[in-house]
């Protein structure tokens, strides 16, 4: 079906927003493929429905059936990024999944902040262990009410308060590893719960979409 320049422009606009949204969460080659598939779908649907005197309404109807580009992008992210993060626990998918969660819901944002805090805290503790090897007088283990606390300072902390010496290293490594493992496991559990919840909400949205009832697929 031949589409006018105005109709083409509307389709290109939809695909542009979709691509931009997908790029936030997915690798470039996946984005290009997804956008190509969605474009193929739009043109196929327009061909199926056939020419109409009101081309604008026709294009809008096909795009409405497909869903807003941001929602489609979120569905992609949910199915591909979050699923991969839950299944593999790898760093890049985890980061993408939490970026998606943080930009989608308030709860997701708070969870992302908490998870980020956990990773940063473990990174700081690992850094303390490494720093102790090269700058032992800048990293000390002190005790506050019997709780061992690692302290950084610059310039050097007077030796009088240094009570840990090289015990900083195993203590920082154990604490850092503990926080890292707890954060990572917690993050994966949270994502598993969150993805199920989002899928439920998606199905609910699909179910109540009024325009769905007007679509003639055959």
């Amino acid at each position: 079906m031949k589409i006018s320049e105005v109709g083409e422009s509307r389709i290109r606009g939809y695909l542009f927003v979709l691509e931009r949204s997908l790029r936030t969460f997915l690798p470039r080659e996946v984005v290009a493929d997804a956008a190509r598939e969605v474009e193929s779908h739009i043109r196929e649907r327009l061909d199926q429905i056939g020419p109409s005197p009101d081309e604008r309404a026709l294009v809008e109807r096909v795009l409405r059936e497909l869903g807003p580009p941001l929602k489609v992008a979120q569905a992609y992210s949910l199915e591909m990024t979050v699923d991969e993060a839950v299944a593999t626990g790898r760093v890049t998918p985890m980061a993408r999944a939490f970026l998606h969660a943080a930009t989608t819901t308030v709860g997701g944002f708070l969870a992302a902040v908490l998870v980020l805090w956990g990773y940063v805290a473990s990174a700081i503790l690992f850094s303390a262990a490494v720093l102790e090897l090269f700058r032992p007088r800048n990293v000390v283990l002190t005790f506050h009410y019997l709780v061992p606390v690692i302290t950084f300072d610059y310039p050097e902390i007077p030796t009088a308060v240094d009570q840990g010496g090289y015990w900083v290293i195993p203590y920082a490594l154990v604490c850092g590893l503990g926080i890292l493992v707890a954060t990572h496991r917690g993050a994966r559990h949270w994502l598993t719960w969150w993805i199920e919840r989002r899928r439920m909400m998606q199905l609910r949205l699909i179910d109540v979409a009024p325009e769905k009832n007007t679509v003639d697929m055959r």
Binding site: V30, A34, E37, V38, H41, R45, E65, L66, G67, K71, V72, A75, Y76, L78, E79, M80, D83, Q202, L203, I206, D207, A209, K212
Partner: peptide, 14 residues
């Protein structure tokens, strides 16, 4: 099964 186009493609991708 109620399905919209926008949600089928991501499932196919996964």
């Amino acid at each position: 099964l109620v399905i919209t186009e926008g949600t089928v493609y991501p499932i196919l991708g996964r």
